[in-house]
Design a protein around this nucleic acid. Sequence first.
DNA 1: TGGATGACCAAATTTCGAAATTGGTCATCC
DNA 2: GGATGACCAATTTCGAAATTTGGTCATCCA
Lengths: 234, 234
Amino acid sequence: MTLDRLAASPQADRERAERILAAARELLTAWGYKRVTVDEIARRARIGKGTVYLHWKTKQALFAELLRRDLHKALGDVAADVGQDPSAALPGRLVREVFLRQAGDPVIRAVHAGDSEILGALAVSPNGVPVIQELGFHALLARLVEVWRAHGLVAVTAPAADQIYTIDAVLTGFITGGIAVPGEGLRPDHRADLLSHTIKAALETSAEPDEASLRAAARDVLAALIAARDALVA
Amino acid sequence: MTLDRLAASPQADRERAERILAAARELLTAWGYKRVTVDEIARRARIGKGTVYLHWKTKQALFAELLRRDLHKALGDVAADVGQDPSAALPGRLVREVFLRQAGDPVIRAVHAGDSEILGALAVSPNGVPVIQELGFHALLARLVEVWRAHGLVAVTAPAADQIYTIDAVLTGFITGGIAVPGEGLRPDHRADLLSHTIKAALETSAEPDEASLRAAARDVLAALIAARDALVA
DNA sequence: TGGATGACCAAATTTCGAAATTGGTCATCC
DNA sequence: GGATGACCAATTTCGAAATTTGGTCATCCA
């Protein structure tokens, strides 16, 4: 998404873009989209303001790439987990990983929570569609459910649409946190365990999956994650 | 919570208070707390503005009673269900009922969702505590989990605090709805079914409860609901 | 000579005092 | 003596002036 235009050297050019993105990320989590000025980003990256516009056409485009970068990394990390251990492809386990990524990254959390305070103009795309949809999260979730069903990891007696909705609602509930329970007495990884257990109980088949089908499912889940990750670059 | 003060007749006085509350409820759901003026309420109730202040000391006090009234009725309704059918006391069933009440009542929904757009100054009490906590929702939930555990309807292997948190998060997730899934393609009662199934799977013991303990649990659940309801009046 | 820059501009946002509105009171009136 | 609406202080809204900011481009070196 960087503008095509020659620089001193492709090497230096890329490194400069990284410096700009790093400055933008810092400011975004600290101040939120609206309060961050391009001037301030340039100052932190120790370049002129005009130089920012040699890399991105608009402020929005810059932050959109920032979002894609973070999400790209998160999806890659989750995919790596699945590659390491096939059982990480199970619904409960996978949702657990997603939860922990957002707990550890303010930007990703903002996306999942639809936090317009931080996301500002990025919260909804020009078409009025929430970024998280724009970013293909729903398509990925639908694909994952499809894979899980195909490999018998979740019950096929219930409609896939219901399972998608359930996962989305439960994940959102754990991310935003409940209303009634005061304070955050629970550690993120413990909350992740509760979420994992809930998803597992609500969706996974009671029978333990055999090694072979789990391994096959993991391969498809991995492919879906990588496909979703790579789709971000397009 | 009405001010103690003599009126033409206790009968007429009470009826007038009801007219005021009805007008306030209409306006609250249509415009939200902040945009509703006491003047407009009085106009709709066809009385002078000063008369409103013969019933409540402040605008906040008026709406606080409105909230309590709606919640009082909802808790009574749920209690009635449990009285009718003991199996309505099961976690999944009970949460289902709560979900349907909030789906059907804009004021209750606003309370559960923490909708400060509608609740305005009511969203948080003067102490900065969310209304829903102030209204004892957490205490009720804790008590219900305690009862369910005592009667073997939910597993006692997991800590009660975890179960309370889980119910709260899941319920909140279903009320606010997920982020990724576009549109509301699902009917409220169908969403209620999915919620019910999720809670049941995540918390209830696998063994079907015997008639006797279910009946005993229902009695305690009923008592807890009534106690929570009556606590609103204090 | 072309990549980097910051002065510059139109548009959006913030400021802040004036004007209007509103929660709450109370002298007045049936 | 219960009900009322004119009235008041305090808050909110309005709006125009002042400031800020996203984005451009003539200028400047390396």
